[in-house]
């Protein structure tokens, strides 16, 4: 009972803090690499609070969907973060089928698209069309990777797949590394980060995510930004979980150390993304499929290993 309470406490803390810290770490790393001092790590939280206090302008052509979409999206992502084992510990949750999770992500995307289309602005539609294309391309990568894990561990429940008592996957570092890489690559696409989209510039012609939320302001924007950051932490967290399971030694460690590894892993990935974003150049739109292809390749390899493991 006590442990369950502690789990809930830590979980809520992570849901609140992780998005802010990860976003802050990425920005800080980028700033340092550009020889700037950079904003404090928690700047994202101050920004959100500031946005929430501001007034809001809603286009007169927008319907109720525009306002509702952001809230639905937030609830959706909160649900996902509860179901998905993106931390090494988690409070009780119902079984989370991997297909359910993948399509919950898809649902949150649908509402973002609807909100972008709803206002009728040109850039919104522009971003929505790009987002739809990207999600179409990236979905097989995420799905195939998770299915490969599921096939090896003989279950489709994500909790079951990621539980440390599941021995099917214990001595299989290759598949964990591959799925982890596939998830991190597809999350870069999913979250519209470099090299797909540059989150810092506002050049409408090249934007994906920013173009969609151009019409949002005030509290609405704060919700959207937080949702986005939480989605990022869930995805990065999932890949950290994959990577840490690649080391067989981690499986036997006590829970507290696993949790610390998770935190260190999240920060490392955030810094790695920061470094990558300051080195990488944004890809031409037409060459993005070449990038996504690497994510799919990783998943295909993982699937190959799963199949080979089934044959042998």
């Amino acid at each position: 009972m006590i442990t369950e309470l502690i789990h809930w406490l830590f979980f809520l803390l992570s849901v609140l803090l992780a998005p802010i810290v990860i976003l802050g770490t990425i920005r800080k790393t980028k700033a340092r690499l550009q020889a700037r001092r950079g904003a404090p790590i928690l700047q994202a939280a101050f920004d959100l609070i500031r946005l929430a206090q501001k007034g809001e302008t809603v286009s007169s052509t927008a319907s109720w969907i525009f306002r509702a979409a952001s809230t639905i999206g937030l609830c959706n992502v909160l649900l996902i973060s509860w179901l998905v084992p993106w931390l090494s510990f988690a409070p009780w949750a119902p079984p989370a089928d991997l297909f359910l999770v993948v399509y919950l992500f898809a649902m949150s995307r649908i509402f973002t698209l609807l909100a972008a289309l709803d206002t009728g602005s040109a850039f919104g539609a522009f971003g929505a069309s790009r987002e739809a294309t990207l999600s179409l391309l990236v979905e097989p990568a995420a799905l195939l990777g998770l299915v490969a894990l599921g096939a090896t561990s003989r279950t489709s429940d994500l909790r079951e797949i990621f539980s440390f008592t599941n021995t099917h996957l214990q001595m299989n570092p290759a598949i964990w590394l591959l799925v982890g890489t596939a998830i991190i690559l597809s999350s870069l696409v999913e979250l519209s980060r470099m090299p797909i989209d540059d989150p810092t510039t506002h050049l409408e012609l090249t934007m994906v995510h920013e173009a969609m939320i151009l019409e949002a302001s005030g509290r609405n924007l704060a919700i959207i930004e937080f949702t986005h950051a939480l989605r990022m932490s869930v995805l990065f967290g999932l890949s950290v979980q994959c990577f840490m399971r690649a080391a067989p030694a981690v499986w036997k460690l006590p829970e507290i150390i696993q949790a610390m590894i998770t935190i260190i892993g999240l920060l490392t990935i955030a810094m790695a993304v920061g470094v990558f974003e300051s080195l990488a150049v944004k890809l031409q739109w037409r060459r993005i499929p070449e990038f996504i292809a690497y994510a799919i390749t990783m998943s295909l390899l993982a699937a190959l290993i799963a199949v080979a493991g089934g044959i042998v």
């Binding site: 499929p289 292809a293 295909l300």
Partner: peptide
């Protein structure tokens, strides 16, 4: 052939060679 497709085919070829 578009390089992404070719890359996926070569992974499938890896499976085929098994």
């Amino acid at each position: 052939v578009a390089p992404p497709i070719a890359m996926h085919s070569s992974i499938l070829l890896l499976g085929l060679s098994f």
